[in-house]
Every structure is written in structure tokens, then in C-alpha cells.
Amino acid sequence: MAGMSPSERRLQKELMSLVKEPPPGVSVDPDIAERNLLHWIIDIRGAAGTLYEGERFQLQFKFSNKYPFDSPEVTFVGQNIPVHPHVYSNGHICLSILTDDWSPALSVQSVCLSIMSMLSSCKEKQRPPDNAFYVKTCNKNPKKTKWWYHDDSV
């Protein structure tokens, strides 16, 4: 613990509270994160009564050593990428708190909750209109994308 950087210390704290009291629908494998604190995989479940009820998704968080001043790189990974107007088929998410509106007072937990509420408020399962073009041309890191945020209501 003594040799930890400030970002690792904060991540350690976040991990412990997430393992101890995970919000409904969110779970993290503590071992995966303990092997490398800068790389987490989080399981989320679609909330009951929404279009994603019963579905399971995996979110990947990559942190730089400037976290929490620098936002984490968050993408959907794995077999099931949610079909949603703000989620590209390569897992990239168009969500302003992940770039412009990031704040160091946000956390892994609050990002998960924002993404879950983004899914929950979806009224029609469809990919973003520019999905094909974006997926072909984008950088691997979604933070490199200059996002043009659509309406936040969806």
C-alpha cells in the first residue's frame, strides 16, 4: 500500500467500496482488478422493466496514472454490446461525462450508474445513425474522438 500512487490509492478505495456495497445491477470481480488496478472489467445487468431487462454487459475501464483528474476510458466489451443510440457496435459510448463533463468527484460507480440510466431510458433499440462510418474510422481510444453530444434525453 505504501508504494501506491495517488491514482492507485483512490482506485483501491473505490474497488473496496464497490465490492462491499455494489449498487443493484453492478458487480466487479475483485481479483481481476487487484491484479492490475488500472484495468477493470465490470458486469452490469439491464434493469428490470427496461428494453435491456435480463441482458448482461461488460464494461471495461482503463485508467491512466492521472486518474481521477483524467477521465477513465470506458467501453463496452465482450459478446454483447448493447444496441443503443449512443453505443457504437465497437463498444464506444457517447456520453459527455466520459470526456468534456468529467469531474474528479465522479467515480467508477457513478459512471456505471450513468451508463445504466442511459440504457434504462432508451425507448428504441438502435445503433447510432453514423455507426458504420464511425466504427470504420475511429481511433481505438474513444477519448480521442471529438464527440458531438446528441441530446442527453435518450
Partner: peptide, 17 residues
């Protein structure tokens, strides 16, 4: 600083488990 951090971790991990 480091020692206090160790303490908090210990405490929360014991109360967690």
C-alpha cells in the same frame, strides 16, 4: 501519510470481510 493509509485500508478490509 503512508502509514495512515495502511491503517485505513486495514480497517476497511477487516470490516468489509
Amino acid at each position: 501519510m503512508a502509514s495512515s493509509a495502511t491503517e485505513t485500508t486495514k480497517e476497511s478490509s477487516t470490516s468489509g470481510s
